[in-house]
Design a protein around this nucleic acid. Sequence first.
DNA 1: TGAAATGTTGGGGCG
DNA 2: ACGCCCCAACATTTC
Length: 435
Amino acid sequence: MKPAVHIFWFRRDLRLHDNAGLFHALDSGIPVLPLFIFDTRILDELENKSDARVSFIYQALEDMQEILVKNGTSLDVRTGTPVSVFTQLTEDYDIRAVSCNRDYEPYAIQRDEQVAALLHQSGIPFHQYKDQVIFEKDEVLKDDGKPYTVFTPYSRKWKATLHNESYLPFPSEKKSGHYFRQPAKPLPALGSFGFSPSPITFPGKTWKPELIRAYKEQRDIPSIPGTSRLSVHLRFGTVSIRELARNAGSLNETFLNELIWREFYQMILWHFPHVVSRAFKPEYDNIRWRNNEKEFDAWCNGKTGYPIVDAGMRELKTTGFMHNRVRMIVASFLTKHLLIDWRWGEAWFAAQLLDFDLASNNGGWQWAAGSGCDAAPYFRVFNPYLQTQKFDPDLKYIRRWVPELEELTYPAPVVVHEEARKRCLEAYAAALKNK
DNA sequence: TGAAATGTTGGGGCG
DNA sequence: ACGCCCCAACATTTC
């Protein structure tokens, strides 16, 4: 006799508290089996076998497991494609329902459709809930029912849509008696599916009110810890967006706006999935990128001879993180000074960033390249020296990552700023003239 | 959530 | 005293 269970499938919501889908599953009256799948379709794409994100997920699973075991249950962690894992699970259990939280990326949508179809064959209901955003795909639309493509009016409508219940928690942590009771199952070792631990240390998920209050004034100075560092926790759901928006969003409008940017880009990705491979504005696909591989390599490895660019790229490679101000500078430099396709930069960030999120990364890159919705105008070319003067005047951030700055070993600039700027304006103008 | 080029203004040096 | 020039300093426009 197979045990009857309601499976809750964790994906980018790796927490036991204030978890919308988990709350509803625990409320269903059927014992909940918590499941996580190391998806080989994703893992096989990762070139770095000590990828920090895999370690981060693993640690989050260990944290959840510790609590679950105390509650007399255990995570069921499996490796494989989701369809094959669920096929196996239907043999092990009498599955009464499967629940999870919605994921809006193209691959996730397709994956969930396949799983839903499989479960449907066996008559198993598949429930999905909103959890990773305050407002999802079609909750903040223009009055004519179409999606916004400009941030400011979107954010205005987002704030107008907000009501007393928008931030209300789903206290899944208070229903810990509703899990399927079973002895602890040890998590499969990282090595069992070909990975090893990452040396990167992960940012904490607590924050101080003073930091949020000072966010507007401090967030642009890369030498000080003026940003929250919560992005990775929002990416994997180790922090609840409702809890964060409720507590931190009210302290600082600029910080709240950043949370809204996140939802803006998720909304854009949902309605305009072509942005994954093409420019939001089609005429920008006419740009004749130079795509010089040596220059790209110099950019990736922080050897462009532009200290602020090199500092950022080295911070990224070493820590899996880059300060947001510097992300804008290095992205502007790659696309405009070097005239290298924004997709190359996007892919490098995707491989390196611990907090990588398809929607935000793609949105940010298309913003920098000028090809995105509500993007920086193409003629806005960041001057790396002026950006340094404004945001790292005493070279504190630069010296931390480029210690050889004043030595002969530091490379000469790969391009001369004035010339590169002129070349960029010509290339963009040529691509856009007949739009 | 730029920067550079160009235009305007006004104070001060100087004949 | 006055006009002329120079050039910050600020404003506008252009990319």
